[in-house]
């Protein structure tokens, strides 16, 4: 997918910090945030692919990876060595080979978009221009955040957007939200500090399905504006990639 980040051949592109007796945090050492994010994404894919002995689970940050492990199966030192070895080769793990494409119908305006006016004015754009910029962006899913919410990068806003100073306590499922130049979809009703600019009638996550979501890190997403009149027709439909699930 993207070209090699400079410095990726260096064996020490990650720092390793012990997080208690059963976890370590790996943080890319690059000074460039975009490089750090790319390195973290690749490392996560590589560790998930190799599944080193003793590793129990992974928790992804945008610029880091928490590796949770069973210290009775693997020692800290051995695991650290293994992870750094994996990091060295993580550029070569194909993760985007089977990337899929999503187009998500979204209603902008009214109750669905409480933060759209303030987002537009912060960006120095009209509401129309803000929507056009957003729907014209091709986003990439970086990771699955809380409750499998797709965390996406690549919104072509002219500047980074702040989060809400006072988080909203109850945002409905399907809400499309932005912060920085990232976007995320609220899979279930709940609180958020992200800014709500639209809402999709589709079901993002359905726990009666296995898997409960149809997207994975590396997939691409575009949003397309639909009129409110189409809401009922699409409401509750499960989000699937372009061309259907395969």
């Amino acid at each position: 997918m993207a070209e090699h980040p400079p410095g990726s051949s260096s064996p020490q592109q990650f720092s390793v910090t012990p997080y208690g007796d059963s976890a370590v945090l790996l943080t890319p050492t690059s000074t460039d945030p975009a490089e750090r994010r790319l390195a973290a994404t690749r490392l996560r894919a590589a560790v998930a692919h190799h599944r080193p002995r003793g590793v129990v689970d992974l928790a992804a940050g945008l610029e880091s990876l928490l590796v949770e492990f069973d210290p009775l199966q693997v020692s800290h030192d051995l695991l650290e060595d293994t992870l750094l070895l994996i990091a060295e080769t993580s550029d070569h793990v194909a993760e985007a080979g089977d990337a899929r494409e999503f187009v998500i119908p979204t209603v902008f305006g009214g109750d669905h978009s409480p933060d759209l006016p303030s987002v537009a004015s912060e960006l120095g754009l009209t509401v129309e221009e803000t929507i056009t910029t957003f729907t014209g962006s091709v986003l990439t899913i970086n990771l699955l955040a809380s409750a499998m919410a797709p965390m996406m990068a690549g919104v072509q806003f002219p500047r980074q957007l702040a989060r809400l100073a006072e988080p909203r306590t109850d945002v409905p499922s399907g809400s499309i939200m932005v912060a920085g130049t990232n976007a995320i979809i609220q899979p279930f009703p709940g609180p958020t500090g992200w800014r709500v600019i639209g809402r999709t009638p589709l079901t993002i996550c359905d726990i009666s399905r296995d898997p409960a979501v149809s997207f994975r890190p590396g997939d691409t997403v575009r949003f397309t504006a639909i009129p409110q009149e189409r809401w009922d027709e699409l409401a509750g439909e499960f989000l699937e990639p372009v061309g259907g699930l395969r």
Binding site: S22, T27, G61, L62, S64, L66
Partner: peptide, 10 residues
């Protein structure tokens, strides 16, 4: 601090 993964017991 950039938001990062946190283990149980932190």
């Amino acid at each position: 601090i950039v938001s990062h993964g946190v283990p149980v017991g932190a």
